[in-house]
Nucleic acid binder design. Structure first.
Lengths: 171, 171
DNA sequence: TATTGTTATACTCTATAACTATA
DNA sequence: TATAGTTATAGAGTATAACAATA
């Protein structure tokens, strides 16, 4: 149900360190740049951006919101009505066992139903309820606000290019 | 000590869904675009990129490597020798209690030492050992390879702009 | 035999609260 | 009083392994 915002925060990203020693050499003239793994790191920049954007997301959603993963799951079921748990697991990139808990959560909130299929008694058809649709409408407004917030310092063209570049490194 | 690569993977990012219904309307002509929260989402693109880059990082580091957070901590101590745990907590964005475990790990691996300070018996001066420096050198090579891998599909100029844009949305 | 869902268990990371020692 | 470090405890998210029911 409610996921505390604090436990969701991923803050293993340090503020940029002033590189006391990263540019200098030691007494023997050896370069010390290997000390600072975060300096000029694209991977670290991505992680830092992800942490900061999550902080903004949580600040907008509030402490009792669905977790991002469960939001994604709800959205997937909505756009793929009748999907089963194994397929959902595949799409979420987690195990079937993990999806059981995700669906348990969404079902306990009455956002999703496990519907029996006449021809296949081994799997469920997952469907979003009316309450689930209402929640998605609500989340849609909030995530739109979130999108505007994180893109508030860049232009439309920059936003487009940023997404394009992110897609390239994610491939 | 060794962090299993599997448990590090953050995969709450779904593969892009074909929007079965996100562009269409329902029978009453209502738009259904609110169903797909991931469509054209910058925040989701950032998260997806972060998950994919972490997968590449783990594939290069292997299953027994330091976790990214502990790598960052080690690097910070190296660039700020004598830092104490509270300061390190601040820089990592986690609590003092959390840092205890981070330093415990690094100390058990002999990468870091808690050194007593004569004038202040309340805090430690954290320093990186010779073995810690060796590990940082090794990690530096591996993370360099990682950086090349994640940027392999974009130009130097694009990499520069990507980092610039990421910094802007992280502010 | 293979697939689907489930349960049991465990691990990482992080948090809060309460505590000790020291400043 | 305030600060630094620690311990105990808890919770979210994920994994693996073993299992029953079904295909």
């Amino acid at each position: 149900m409610s996921t505390s915002s604090s436990s969701l925060r991923q803050k293993d990203v340090a503020a940029n360190t002033e590189p006391d020693a990263s540019k200098a050499g030691d007494a023997q003239g050896h370069p010390l740049s290997f000390l600072d793994l975060q300096n000029d790191s694209l991977g670290y920049a991505v992680k830092r951006a992800q942490v900061r954007t999550y902080e903004m997301l949580f600040s907008i959603l509030g402490p009792d919101a669905l977790s991002p993963g469960r939001m994604t799951a709800l959205s997937i079921v909505a756009t793929k009505p009748g999907i089963n748990q194994s397929e959902l697991a595949e799409m979420l990139g987690i195990t079937r066992a993990g999806v059981v808990k995700v669906v348990d959560t969404l079902e306990s909130l009455r956002f999703v139903e496990r519907r029996k299929i006449p021809d296949n008694r081994r799997s469920y058809a997952l469907v979003v309820t009316k309450a689930g649709l209402d929640e998605l409408r609500r989340l849609s407004v909030l995530t739109q606000r979130y999108e505007e917030k994180i893109a508030s310092r860049i232009s439309k063209a920059e936003r487009r290019q940023l997404m394009s570049l992110l897609d390239k490194i994610a491939t």
